[in-house]
């Protein structure tokens, strides 16, 4: 168990709802769900959710910490915002799902091989490095995120698509050699570091 996870377990004991409220993006909204299920029915990836959002909310209230945080479900969010648009209680469900995913990942509870988890982290690292997303590097990293052999297979499968993109000048090999980026990366990194610090401090401050 990660130290952070350990600390959270001790801090909140059985009150998972409170833990979520304090630590998860828009987590204070979880208590407002009335179990209508419109979110569950609205999700384009619905069938792939082991637990749909509304059920996750109920599980949070029921204190099913382990089950929720190790679930692959919230990694199924495509950010289509259908659930938000339709929720009768105006719960920012998309953000809560992102928030839960992020929190689970930080605690080290998210399933290691969940592809979206890996991709999302790759993406973040990719963009924060130079301030802008590098599609080629991201793509290559993506192919190899499940290991070298898998990566070759995926790359082959994607070969034609990649070629098409090169052909139409919508993917540039120049990107490998540095590519786009912002000038003030230092400033950006300082901002992100500070933001992370404030966020952690806020979660610690939260009480009830």
């Amino acid at each position: 168990m990660s130290t952070m996870n350990q600390a959270k377990v001790e801090k909140y004991r059985n009150d998972f709802l409170k833990e979520v409220t304090a630590n998860v993006e828009e987590g204070e909204w979880v208590k407002m769900c009335m179990q209508c299920g419109v979110c569950a029915g609205s999700c384009p990836f619905g069938p792939y959710w082991e637990h749909p959002p509304q059920e996750i909310f109920m599980m949070i209230r029921a204190g099913k910490r382990e089950e929720v945080l190790t679930s692959t479900s919230m990694w199924m969010c495509t950010s289509c915002y259908n659930c938000i648009a339709r929720c009768p209680r105006e719960l920012p469900i998309t953000h809560i799902m992102h928030g839960l995913a992020h929190y689970a990942d930080r605690l080290g509870l998210a399933p290691k091989n969940q592809p979206t988890r890996k991709f999302a982290n790759l993406f973040w690292n990719n963009l924060t490095k130079k301030g802008r997303a590098n599609e080629l590097k991201l793509g290559i990293a993506l192919y190899f995120m499940n290991g070298f052999i898998e990566g070759i297979k995926t790359a082959l499968k994607m070969q034609k698509m990649g070629l098409n993109m090169f052909k139409t000048k919508r993917l540039s090999p120049m990107e490998l050699l540095g590519g786009h980026g912002i000038k003030d990366t230092g400033g950006l990194h300082a901002i992100l570091k500070k933001a992370r610090e404030i966020e952690l401090a806020n979660a610690e401050k939260f009480n009830g």
């Binding site: 208590k31 009335m34 179990q35 209230r61 029921a62």
Partner: peptide, 25 residues
């Protein structure tokens, strides 16, 4: 079945949730 009808009922229900009351079907 939670029964909180009319103009005030649903507001009161939401207020209860806001205060952290848990509702379990």
């Amino acid at each position: 079945d939670l029964r909180t009808p009319g103009a005030g009922g649903e507001d009161f229900y939401r207020s209860g949730q806001q205060k952290g009351i848990t509702f379990t079907k």
